[in-house]
Write a protein that binds this DNA or RNA. Structure first.
Lengths: 248, 248
DNA sequence: CCACTCAGGTGGTCGGACCACTACGCGCAA
DNA sequence: TTGCGCGTAGTGGTCCGACCACCTGAGTGG
């Protein structure tokens, strides 16, 4: 008490040899630690992590902070928490990690939407070209299933659903799961619903139908260049329409 | 509009006998609520949110749960928390939202790395082609700056740094911020460091140098097709090397 | 042998407390 | 009046302890 300005250099327990520079928040450090564990292979995909309580004790933080870190990695698709069972590392496949891509599409607006469609046009055209060269008979049959189903109804919801599946099968046939996952996020339901609502009101149904038919023909003919052109035109149509809507 | 699982929803295996008013966890609902508020425009980019305590009270949940929701949206690049000041919506620009893309690159392994490089090759070649047509004198000067700096040193760290900047400027010159942000995530430091460590050990320095020079020439000549070919070859070289490493 | 029960462990939620930091305004001095 | 400091109220950051909801698996009884 009487000490006015003590140096207090005695018995300093602090001290770990490495002063452990307080980088960001405690939670952020926990996120990085866990991410590092996975990156270094100390946690295999599908592995089960220690309990929240143990993890918190290991890193010397509270369970609350650890829970925030886990929640963060959960929304990123890195971890998966099963109530009553434990916390597990996901398979770290493209679909798991790229699920967040949908958030980008959902929250983008104005010019950013056009940019997203441009990216989709580039990837989708290439994916369709690859699919034309590699697609199997089974996959082709599935494509046709969605194509006919799409043309057999007038319910916009159902059309949209089969439209998504149509492109998803094609992307899958391209043989690049990562690309397929990105395209999936780029075509998230809410994203397309927002854009297509206006697009289809302009009587674009028939045009869309023709474009899908063109893509299908190219796939049947195993003609990559035709497939690339058809897919690029397909997405490009929507892209141009959206561009005109934003900048009238 | 609840969960969107890839599996079809045709069969009802006695599941969900009750209407199940409780969607997911409380925290997940909070995440969706805030996301919806932003999506509907009730929260403009840059806007300040109510305090954690108020938000929790509004949604009728505890502050702990609300904090987890906020943390989740923070790592997704949607929100930004400033200690002592408040919680703010980000500008929701491509860079903010696509920062998580780096996580994907960092955690991918084996065949997935090749797929990521394939996506990068497709986007980078197109971006470089667009840049060849649109690049300004100032941007070209910056490209040259990084090119010479890259060739003037032997420090791998510095080379990698200028290499990243080199491609970043080109992607920016393409005029599509979203594509540039994706390419940025696809080339995150740790990702490239991991791949390049091995690649450059095989004496690929000289080849890389020639490829960069070729890209630069195409940009100077404003020749999109040459730029596309040069960029595709550049990434393709690494892609092929990596493919051979994984499947010897 | 099977089906059922139930207890333990796990993640999920809650409320409160305190700390670290920021922002703003009051009051003092020039 | 003007400017600058300092104090304070308010914010996010962290921690704790308790309880709830759910899953799992060992034990039990048929």
């Amino acid at each position: 008490m009487d000490e006015s300005l003590p140096e207090a250099a005695t018995t300093a327990p602090a001290a770990a040899p490495a002063p452990a520079p307080q980088k960001g928040t405690v939670t952020q450090r926990a996120i990085d630690r866990i991410k590092a564990m996975i990156g270094e292979g100390r946690l295999e995909p599908g592995a089960r992590l220690p309990t929240e309580r143990d993890l918190a004790a290991q890193l010397g933080i509270s369970r609350s902070s650890m829970r925030e870190a886990i929640r963060a990695l959960t929304v990123l698709g890195v971890l998966e928490a099963r109530h009553g069972s434990g916390i597990y590392v996901t398979q770290l496949e493209a679909g798991d990690l790229l699920e967040t891509f949908g958030v980008v599409a959902d929250l983008s607006r104005g010019p950013r939407l056009v940019e997203l469609l441009e990216v989709r046009r580039i990837l989708e055209s290439t994916a369709t070209a690859l699919a034309a060269a590699r697609i199997t008979a089974d996959q082709l049959a599935e494509v046709e299933k969605h194509l006919t189903a799409m043309n057999a109804t007038d319910d916009p919801e159902e059309i949209l659903s089969h439209d998504l599946a149509f492109h998803r099968v094609i992307a899958g046939a391209a043989g690049n799961e990562t690309m397929a996952a990105i395209l999936d996020g780029l075509s998230s339901r809410t994203f397309r619903a927002r854009v297509w609502r206006g697009y289809q009101e302009e009587g674009a149904f028939e045009r869309t139908r023709r474009e899908h038919a063109a893509i299908h023909r190219a796939l049947v003919a195993h003609d990559p260049e035709a497939a690339r052109a058809a897919a690029a035109a397909h997405v490009g149509e929507v892209e141009e329409w959206l561009r005109s809507q934003i900048q009238p």
